[in-house]
């Protein structure tokens, strides 16, 4: 029996490589540049990023990335983070023919809706197209992968304000109780802080 995708593979924390085209055969590439103001710049080796794909074409990668931006719309979240979703879908497509077919069919369906290239369609129509795909296997595969991949990486942690693995040493002396907009509970309710 096939395991549901929604509890599958954890997302590797590895970010994307700095832009340097690796000569992989027969597959596509996604690339982009982090915004100057990006808080993620500190996490990346450089502003330019690239993703070499093993099973998906460049066009398929771009369509899936755009599709994911409508699924989980965070206007100020960099494409570099959405590219991690494409990366994980590419891994699945590379390991499993069914996933590869599902992705190819979904992209083909979108292109057909868009009359050749879905990426050229207006944003308003693209948003409607995404909703119209909800019952398809393509939508389910992309969504269940995206909800894991998009929010389980250090770039997302920085964007959304989650400490992530950086909190491993503990917040006892680093702000675990730094909230000041409400009164502190009395000592009967909240115990003493151990001396450092």
């Amino acid at each position: 029996m096939k395991r549901e995708t929604n509890i599958e593979s954890a997302v590797p924390l590895a970010g994307l490589k700095a832009s340097r085209r690796n000569l992989l055969k027969g597959a596509g590439m996604l690339s982009g540049t982090l915004a100057l103001s990006s808080t993620l710049a500190a996490l990346a080796p450089g502003r330019a990023w690239a993703l070499d794909m093993k099973a998906l074409s460049s066009h398929q990668g771009r369509v899936i990335l755009r599709f994911t931006r409508y699924l989980y719309p965070h206007p100020s979240l960099e494409d570099a983070v959405y590219a991690l979703v494409v990366k994980d879908l590419d891994d699945k497509a590379s390991a499993d023919a069914d996933s590869k077919n599902t992705l190819a069919q979904g992209v083909a369906q979108l292109d057909q809706i868009g009359g050749e290239d879905w990426l050229k369609r207006s944003a308003a129509l693209q948003e409607i197209d995404v909703a119209s795909m909800e019952s398809t296997n393509f939508f389910k595969l992309v969504r269940s992968t995206a909800v894991v991949s998009l929010y389980s990486n250090e770039m997302a942690y920085a964007h959304f304000g989650y400490g992530g693995p950086a909190g491993n040493t503990g917040y006892l002396y680093k702000g675990f109780n730094d909230l000041t907009w409400l009164p502190d509970p009395p000592p009967t309710a909240s115990g003493p802080i151990p001396p450092s």
């Binding site: 917040y171 675990f176 109780n177 730094d178 909230l179 409400l182 009164p183 502190d184 509970p185 309710a189 909240s190 115990g191 003493p192 802080i193």
Partner: peptide, 21 residues
């Protein structure tokens, strides 16, 4: 177990401050 055997309670974090208020 805290608050038994004369063991003090844990200090509350931000999430607790909100709950308590």
């Amino acid at each position: 177990v805290t608050r038994t055997n004369d063991i003090p309670g844990l200090p509350g974090n931000n999430n607790f401050k909100v709950m308590y208020a």
